[in-house]
Amino acid sequence: MSNKTQWQSVCSVDDLIAESGIAVWTADGPVAIFYLPNRIPCLFAIGHTDPFSGSNVLARGITGDLKGQPVVASPLYKQHFNLETGVCLEDDAVQVPTYPVLLDGNNVVLEVPVKSQVKEIA
């Protein structure tokens, strides 16, 4: 298995919704990108799959701040995931993957495996 990665455009800034998430597809699987314009950094990317249900729903969760940590609450069982580390606040043995993400002009770019094919999913 290769550890090589590349930065790849996954969506435009216009696709982002303040204080919310969108889902994109990568070779590594579905990824949830969150835009929190009142924080620095303002973009976060974590795995879109809720580890408790196996459903791709985390981009649909409610964002917030718990004890100074940016989090998303899963829309299914309400566990909170730290957007910086991916760790579940209710069970720190559970974690979702995190991905480096940044703005490149009007494009949101995500660090993904080299052979990634990216498309936006609904």
Rank of each mutant, 00 (worst) to 15 (best):
I22R: 08
D28W: 00
P100G: 11
D91M: 04
Y35W: 06
T26M: 01
I22W: 06
E84M: 09
N107F: 11
S74V: 02
Q69A: 11
G105A: 13
D28F: 02
V13L: 10
L89G: 12
P113W: 10
R60N: 13
V71A: 03
Q95K: 13
Y99T: 13
A93S: 14
Y35V: 02
N3H: 02
N3I: 02
Q6V: 07
G21K: 10
A93K: 14
E90P: 05
T49W: 03
V13A: 11
A18P: 05
N56I: 05
T5K: 09
V72F: 09
T63N: 04
C11A: 06
A18E: 01
C11D: 02
V94W: 08
Q6R: 06
P75L: 08
R39G: 00
P37E: 01
P113M: 09
T5H: 06
P70R: 08
L36W: 02
T98P: 15
T85Y: 01
V10Q: 00
I121G: 04
A27V: 06
L66S: 05
L103Q: 14
I33Y: 02
L103K: 15
G105C: 14
G64C: 13
S74R: 10
I46S: 08
L43Q: 01
P97V: 09
Y99P: 15
S9V: 12
K119R: 12
G105D: 15
E120R: 12
K115S: 14
W25E: 08
P51Y: 01
S116G: 06
A18K: 05
A27Q: 09
G29T: 04
S12E: 12
V13S: 12
V109W: 11
I62D: 04
P30A: 06
T98N: 15
A45K: 10
Q117V: 09
L36G: 03
V24G: 09
I33E: 07
A27Y: 06
V57K: 11
I22A: 05
W25R: 04
L103G: 07
E111L: 14
G68L: 07
S53K: 00
V101W: 08
R60H: 08
D65G: 00
E120M: 14
P100C: 14
V10G: 03
V57G: 07
E19Q: 07
Q8D: 03
W25S: 06
L110G: 07
D92H: 13
S74P: 07
L16T: 12
V101T: 08
P97W: 06
Q6P: 01
D91Y: 03
K67Q: 12
P100L: 13
P113N: 14
